[in-house]
Design a protein around this nucleic acid. Sequence first.
DNA 1: CACTGTGAATGCATTCACAGCG
DNA 2: CGCTGTGAATGCATTCACAGTG
Lengths: 221, 221
Amino acid sequence: MTSSLRRPIPEASVERLSLYARELGRLDRQGIGFISSKRLGEALGLTDAKVRRDLSYVGQFGKRGRGYEVLTLQGALSRILGIEGRAWSVALAGVGNLGSALLAYRGFQERGFVFRVAVDADQKKVGQVVQGVRIAPSRRLSELARQHEVHIGILTVPSEVAQEVCDQLVAGGVRAIVNFAPAHLEVPPSVRLRNMDLAIELEALAFYLGTGRPSRRPAPG
Amino acid sequence: MTSSLRRPIPEASVERLSLYARELGRLDRQGIGFISSKRLGEALGLTDAKVRRDLSYVGQFGKRGRGYEVLTLQGALSRILGIEGRAWSVALAGVGNLGSALLAYRGFQERGFVFRVAVDADQKKVGQVVQGVRIAPSRRLSELARQHEVHIGILTVPSEVAQEVCDQLVAGGVRAIVNFAPAHLEVPPSVRLRNMDLAIELEALAFYLGTGRPSRRPAPG
DNA sequence: CACTGTGAATGCATTCACAGCG
DNA sequence: CGCTGTGAATGCATTCACAGTG
């Protein structure tokens, strides 16, 4: 199942492929066998053209006059996204409030992401088992990441130590990182980094509240 | 200080203005009085041109040959973003693991966001006080939002009920919403919506791991 | 005939590159 | 000279619009 990609898929489209895959699962559970780009788009707040364009990057799955077969498309997307069969191994750095919440989040497990490593700097937490994962000391992060072949690292540590913890993940062979700390991280080009900055999101919203500028078009469709 | 905007600021720039404001705070604490677009960009992983362009949307704060005065620029951005003086009133819907973590997150308070309302559907949670906020029953959400003049709503509820809870926020006059539920929400055009979909982020990363495609340029500068 | 798949057109964001100023 | 501020150029994403097809 190589499904090797013809041309590079736009970054923005990749995120939506994942949305489609999830929605198709829902549609299947509702017993829906075929879906048009228009209706799939409506369910997700996207235009039909965008749906078709996104899907066209990874193949030709539709039947003209009918739409897309839900199960076929879902299977294809799952394979392309790598959530078929295989499980992704995840490491969590920082088991505070947010980290614990992520450990407990069932949405990850459902989509094939499994926490295999969790570390914390606090000696009192080390040894505790949270959600089935034993908390190890921070200094063992890179070693454990390598040992458990961790694919994805999640950082919920204080921003002052975020860079050094990030470096440990990279040293342990981790090639994808989600950073919740409000800090800029430097990683080699081979590592993909995604920042989830909660305070920044709120501030951006506040800006629009302040100016009273809605600047959002009505939902498409 | 109206600082009424000349032209609409690109959405992408707004998020970065907030980044700049926070970094300027750090620089000030380090005793740095002036900063060039180049160095400010380096600290945040951005190019100098991008920094200058972003700032040019909201004014002319730099001194040629010197750079930007840290405190002046910080003050200007804080005013523009609405994090100066005023506090933003936030409501949380869903006090589960993630909701509790957000209530406890100090980064919000520091930037002027205050949780004034929290609701949960679980009767056992109603009445409890978490992080100084008393949990109310879900049915009172719109009433409480209006009473406390809530500006921003945060949803950490199961996706099945996300739309109806969202509707309650809108009914209560809330005009900005952050949605953590893996569901598409329909809101009127006057309401700004931001989705934080954790599983989708991981899947997008997994896609790139699968194809082995790094597709990230080396850090600029 | 209803739908896909896609060239072409548009719109938005980033980057270049440099005139202009302190 | 060093650095900002910004037109112009480029590159990326979205949308249009329709030929092609089961």
